[in-house]
Simulated assay, not measured.
Amino acid sequence: MTDIHWEDAFCGEGASCYRIGVDGDGNSYIAVAGQEDRPLTDSRAALQALILDIKAGRADHLLG
């Protein structure tokens, strides 16, 4: 498995905890905390776009 540097877990209300990580090749990862052996992976640019879209409220409809 690739050497991934994981950030501290981000936990929302309830039990939803996620971790974001990066590797030395510029790939980014997101995983449910405790399941880092099964991450989703994409480019750093794709993860940055996802985070910016979430911050801008473009995913709010998924919460309702």
Score class of each variant (00 low, 15 high):
residue 1 M to L: 05
residue 1 M to I: 02
residue 1 M to Q: 05
residue 2 T to W: 05
residue 2 T to N: 13
residue 2 T to F: 10
residue 2 T to V: 15
residue 2 T to E: 15
residue 4 I to F: 09
residue 4 I to A: 06
residue 4 I to S: 08
residue 6 W to M: 08
residue 8 D to G: 07
residue 8 D to M: 00
residue 8 D to Q: 09
residue 9 A to Q: 07
residue 9 A to K: 10
residue 9 A to Y: 03
residue 9 A to R: 08
residue 10 F to K: 10
residue 12 G to C: 10
residue 12 G to Q: 06
residue 13 E to T: 13
residue 13 E to I: 09
residue 14 G to E: 13
residue 14 G to S: 12
residue 14 G to D: 13
residue 15 A to Y: 08
residue 15 A to F: 09
residue 15 A to G: 14
residue 17 C to S: 03
residue 20 I to E: 00
residue 20 I to C: 07
residue 21 G to D: 01
residue 23 D to V: 08
residue 25 D to V: 03
residue 27 N to S: 14
residue 27 N to K: 05
residue 28 S to N: 00
residue 28 S to R: 02
residue 28 S to H: 00
residue 28 S to T: 02
residue 29 Y to H: 06
residue 29 Y to D: 07
residue 32 V to S: 03
residue 32 V to L: 04
residue 33 A to H: 09
residue 33 A to C: 10
residue 33 A to N: 09
residue 35 Q to V: 01
residue 36 E to S: 11
residue 36 E to N: 12
residue 37 D to Y: 06
residue 37 D to E: 12
residue 38 R to Q: 15
residue 39 P to A: 08
residue 40 L to A: 15
residue 42 D to L: 14
residue 43 S to W: 04
residue 43 S to F: 03
residue 43 S to V: 05
residue 44 R to I: 07
residue 45 A to W: 03
residue 45 A to C: 05
residue 45 A to M: 08
residue 45 A to S: 14
residue 46 A to W: 00
residue 47 L to R: 02
residue 47 L to W: 08
residue 47 L to T: 04
residue 48 Q to A: 13
residue 48 Q to L: 11
residue 49 A to E: 11
residue 49 A to T: 11
residue 50 L to W: 02
residue 50 L to F: 15
residue 50 L to Q: 00
residue 50 L to Y: 05
residue 51 I to D: 00
residue 51 I to K: 03
residue 51 I to E: 02
residue 51 I to M: 09
residue 52 L to N: 14
residue 52 L to M: 11
residue 52 L to T: 11
residue 53 D to G: 15
residue 53 D to P: 04
residue 55 K to V: 09
residue 55 K to F: 10
residue 56 A to I: 07
residue 57 G to H: 02
residue 57 G to D: 01
residue 58 R to L: 14
residue 58 R to Q: 13
residue 59 A to M: 12
residue 59 A to E: 12
residue 60 D to I: 05
residue 62 L to W: 09
residue 63 L to I: 12
residue 63 L to N: 10
residue 64 G to Y: 00
